[in-house]
Nucleic acid binder design. Structure first.
Length: 349
DNA sequence: CAATCGCTTCACT
DNA sequence: CTAACGAGTGAAGCGATTG
């Protein structure tokens, strides 16, 4: 099975350059930042000029500013990025192959048993069309499965197009470090490193039984991938599994009014999105991060599906009564899950 | 024993 | 000076429970 994997380059920042051409060529970031404390957030994405300074996603804004004195800052505009993402999605899907969108700016296209030369041509034409009709750069990887195509894509950034056919896959994987495998991030690679497994090579030779014992399901996945065997298929999207909003706050211990106000606001935003997507939900979850950064979640599953804004609000407020009144609150979130699409075609339960 | 529940952990951008 | 820096969105995994 041959998969073409498309990943936009520095997506949010590229979108901003598209509508603010004056930003291009100068280092800037798109970053989260609570309104009351500017520059208190983290970097979400940055352009390549900023990357030259060592700035990257998730870096605290304060640190990024230390690395680059006159770093530009743009607040995120999710609705705008969603709009561009929708155009991209239509463009990619118009080619007629099974397509999965992995995130707002990533697409996996299953071209079946198409040969590599032909797949390369197709990828080249997609890349050119993304550039000409959307105006944005992207990178495309092609290989014998979704996970491998994504890894090839990552290795070709930015503005690249790279093919690693099946026979060359083991050679490609050999030089990789474990955190080059999608789904293996900071925690998992740290644990693997502590076991002496820092490269895909070593991971491939580790005992599968041991990996499953240590990592459960993920252990199976990492062992398979390290050995060049794909586990993931390209699956047409079925719709979101959950919808949530969260926000950093500064709420003093026991301030029930502030707590309730924030919960009310977040619930309203979630309800708006529920309506916009035309879904029903059955589960409501709140998330609380206390002053010491410990996170707690509380959830309730109703005995029926609903799209009622009042139910989101009432349930979230009820759950918020369980918040520890002796602790300051750092962050709050409201989320609904167990979704079904309201109109016609079913999504996932 | 399979589905569901409540909750935690993790990976991204 | 190993302390301080720390957003938002979403999925997956896991142990317990339930029918």
């Amino acid at each position: 099975m041959v998969v073409i994997y498309i990943d936009m380059d520095y997506f949010f920042a590229a979108c901003e350059e598209l509508r603010h051409p004056e930003l291009a060529g100068k280092p800037f970031v798109v970053g989260t930042s609570p309104p009351e404390h500017r520059m208190r957030g983290v970097v979400q994405t940055c352009n390549y000029e900023a990357r030259k300074y060592g700035i990257h996603s998730a870096m605290p804004m304060t640190e990024a500013l230390k690395l680059c004195k006159d770093l530009g800052y743009v607040p995120p505009d999710d609705a705008y990025y969603e709009g561009i993402s929708a155009k991209l999605s239509a463009l990619v899907r118009s080619r007629g192959y099974a397509t999965e969108s992995d995130s707002i700016d990533e697409f996996a296209v299953d071209v079946g048993d198409m040969g590599y030369p032909e797949a390369t041509k197709l990828a080249g034409s997609i890349k050119a069309e993304v550039r000409s009709s959307i105006g944005l750069p992207c990178t495309i990887g092609i290989s014998s499965g979704k996970t491998f195509a994504k890894m090839v894509c990552d290795s070709a950034k930015p503005d690249g197009l790279r093919v690693v056919p099946e026979p060359e896959l083991s050679g490609f994987l050999a030089g990789k470090s474990v955190d080059d495998i999608p789904g293996i991030g900071r925690k998992l690679s740290e644990k693997l490193a502590s076991m002496g497994l820092d490269t895909v090579d070593k991971l491939a030779r580790a005992s599968a039984t041991m990996l499953v014992g240590e990592f459960g399901e993920v252990g199976t996945y990492m062992h398979m991938i390290a050995n060049g065997r794909e586990t993931e298929r390209v699956v047409e999207n079925t719709g979101a599994l959950s919808i949530g909003r969260e926000r950093a706050v500064r709420i003093n211990a026991g301030d029930a009014v502030a707590l309730r106000n924030t919960i009310t606001d977040l619930s309203g935003q979630v309800s708006g999105e529920v309506t916009r997507q035309g879904v029903l939900f059955k589960t409501v979850t709140i998330k609380v991060r206390y002053g010491d950064f410990t996170v707690r979640t509380k959830s309730i599953s109703l005995n029926h599906y609903t799209d009622s804004a009042a139910v989101v609000l009432d349930t979230a407020v009820e759950l918020s009564l369980g918040v520890d009144p002796t602790k300051a609150v750092n962050k709050l979130g409201v989320r609904v899950s167990s979704l079904v699409s309201m109109k016609g075609q079913k999504k996932l339960f």
